[in-house]
Write a protein that binds this DNA or RNA. Sequence first.
DNA 1: GAGTTTGAAACT
DNA 2: CAGTTTCAAACTC
Length: 535
Amino acid sequence: MEKGEPAAGAMAAAPVVRQLDFTVNFKSASNANARGNLILPEHPQAQLQSKLLALAQQSQQVHARSRPQSPPLMAAQTKLPPRKMVMPPKSPQRELPQMVAPAKSPAVAPRLAHPVKPAFMPKPVFQPLLKMESPKSREKCNLEPNDGTPKKQKQCNCKNSRCLKLYCECFASGIYCDGCNCINCLNKIEHEADRKGSIDAILERNPNAFRPKIASSPRGATDGGVEHNKGCHCKKSGCLKRYCECFQANILCSDKCKCMDCKNFEGSEERKAHFHQYPANSMTFIQQAANAAINGAIGTPSKKSKNQQIVFGVASNKQLTSWPPQFHQETCSTSDASYSPLSVQPSKPDAAVLGLSKSSYRSPLEGILQLQHVKDFCTLLVEVSAEAAQNLSKEKKTSNKTDVIEAELPPVASSHEDSKDRQNQENGDRTSLSESDGCGIQNRRPLSPATLALMCDEQDTTFMASKAPSMITESNPRTDVKPMSMHVLNELYVEQERLVLTRFRNILNRIITCGSIEGDALSYFLTTVSISGEY
DNA sequence: GAGTTTGAAACT
DNA sequence: CAGTTTCAAACTC
């Protein structure tokens, strides 16, 4: 272990923390321990809030890679292999991850808080850079050309790395390849052992290899800024092309960068040119605005570029460039509630461009959506989940006699009589959600066992513990599951999920609408400004 | 679609 | 740590 390297435990937990950190966005700093390890809130509502925040973030990443996370990082906790990077054998050694432990332990919160839990979770927040700029990129990404609707997932094209090196975007972001154009791919669940070996090797070389490149800056706690962890080293691109990781992540180059002839700093004329060339009026832009609002456009942290003090909104210091923002995932290790890992691109003109005060990037949704709204909304959803339980309970009572039969039916069909409309609606909801919020896991690539385990855990605690649904006894639901049929429980989950997600979707739609209105106004404003040269 | 450029990752 | 090679994405034609 090299000096300065985190302790083994911390290291091992790093990936987990990376994926979970965002959940503390709206929590106090006390949710993270000194090492930044996440300590999940104990209160179910708080958990739900965290989860919803994650959803909000995911929804902003509609075009983000939506593949399920693979569980590579468990390897971090295992003993490190020999130093040499060993390319795993090609033989499809089938070995499922050991991390499973899907047996639903009652002690969920403690589990999640455990510093070395080999958890794996969908990491919407930490997804790799989104590639959605050019039409070509869009083809490869999961966006429809114009509307931000998920199209298909980003697919790698690795030929020589077998998708087991960081060259592979899928692998680097912790997801399995599926439907990629790669050759000799070992980044698949059936090659988990190979993956693990590779991950071990990579982590040995660099314990932070799987950490998001873009994360809150050291000043994050106070200014909410984000920057490239390592900084870029561009030489020829001027840091204004997507070769540049900073640019790709929509952040300004920072002190950490060792780039040459950098033009990616606030006030850069070249950078401004990018912005003017591509008006920020895309759907993505709107989504960004929504993202901003959801995650804390409240607050206008600042960040220093290498050249000057710049101030943009939450986590978005750069952008204003050609392409739609990439909702880059970051480590939200900051406890700053206003910090958004979603990196809202400045949805308004660059301050420098407009000659506005440096200190005041303002989200279009600022003033529309407040932090309190989000909190209230989360509370509402908790109540909705309870409501779902009650409704289901009533239905059960009325259809008591057919319980047994119903229990054998699919949850939705069995719990709702007028199932046709309901199902249609639900199907629509689900489809919509799965496409838009980044959480439609079911129709995506298979989740790793560990991911599933963790998600189930979260789900259990989040929804079951909330508001003590009438169907569930007040004590630990996990320990009192016995009296209840698991089918009934599943029904409850389905109903709760349906209601919560539906509500959540509705809220997001409203936010997007608000953002759209503001965005239109902004476009007009920009045009006017551009013509009149007023600024 | 093929070829080139680019910069991160991997390696020495 | 620096230099070189490998790699795959980004980009150009």
